[in-house]
Write a protein that binds this DNA or RNA. Structure first.
Lengths: 114, 114
DNA sequence: TATAGTAGTTACCCATAGGTAAGTAGTTAC
DNA sequence: GTAACTACTTACCTATGGGTAACTACTATA
C-alpha cells in the first residue's frame, strides 16, 4: 500500500468515527439549535418543529453520552432543564458552518431554492 | 418570531436539505475516496473494505442523481467504469475537511485513539 | 377540581437502511 | 471448458431509526 492509499485509509477511518456520532436525522439539527444559545427541552422542540419528544429525549441522551452537550437541572417551579454545548460541542461549529455553506450551495444549484 | 429565531429556522432548513444528501453510512466515505482521484467500482470497494457491492452500487446511483459524482463507461476489455466528482462534488471538500478535523479531535478527546 | 405548564417515558408499529449470498453477463487467459 | 476479471443485480432477511399516541409526575393557577 502506497502513502496515498494509507492517507485515504486513515481518513476513511476518521470519517467513520465522526459519522457514528452525528448520524441520523436529528443530531446535527439539535447541535445547530444549541449554537444559538442554551435551550430547554421545550425550546428545542419548538425550534425543530417536527421532532417528537421521544426522539428529542433519545438524541439528547446520545449527545450527552458523547460529551457534546451538557444537561443541567434547575430546581425552579416547575422544574426546568437546560441543555448547552460542551467545548467539544462548540468545536463542531466550523464543521457545521461548512455543512451549511455547502447546503446553501446545493439548494441553489440543484434544488433551485432561493 | 425575532431575527435570531429566523436565522435559526433558516439554518435548520438548510441543514435538513444537506443532510438528506449525505445521510447514511456510505455516502461521505465514497465521496471522500473519490477526492483522492477518479476510481473504478472495484477500486472503491477495495478502499472501503466492508461495503457490499449492493450498497456501493445503490449509493453511487444516489450520488449520481444528486449530481455529486459522474459515471463514465469505458469500452475497454473487460468493460471498466470510472466514477469521478462533479464540481458540486468537489465543492464538498471544505465540508469534508472540517468533518475530518473534527473527527480527529473527537477521536483524540473521547475515543482516546492516537 | 380541573387545566396547563414543566420534561419527559412507554408501548406499539412500520418503513427502510443495510447485510448476506448467490446469480448475471461479457471477455480473456489458462 | 473452466476459472478469473470486469461491474454489477436480485432475492431475502433483519435490525433499527423513526413515527404516533398515550401516559407519568410534579406544581401552579384559575
Amino acid at each position: 500500500m502506497n502513502q496515498k492509499d494509507q492517507v485515504c485509509q486513515q481518513k476513511l477511518m476518521v470519517s467513520r468515527d465522526a459519522l457514528e456520532v452525528i448520524q441520523g436525522k436529528w443530531r446535527l439539527p439539535i447541535v445547530l439549535a444549541l449554537t444559538f444559545g442554551d435551550k430547554r427541552f421545550g425550546e428545542i422542540q419548538r425550534d425543530i418543529v417536527d421532532i417528537s419528544p421521544k426522539m428529542l429525549s433519545q438524541e439528547l441522551k446520545a449527545l450527552e453520552e458523547n460529551k457534546i452537550i451538557t444537561r443541567t437541572l434547575y430546581d425552579s417551579m416547575p422544574v426546568t432543564v437546560e441543555y448547552s454545548l460542551t467545548p467539544l460541542g462548540r468545536s463542531m461549529k466550523k464543521m457545521l458552518d461548512e455543512l451549511l455553506n455547502w447546503g446553501y450551495h446545493f439548494r441553489k444549484e440543484i434544488l433551485g431554492k432561493q
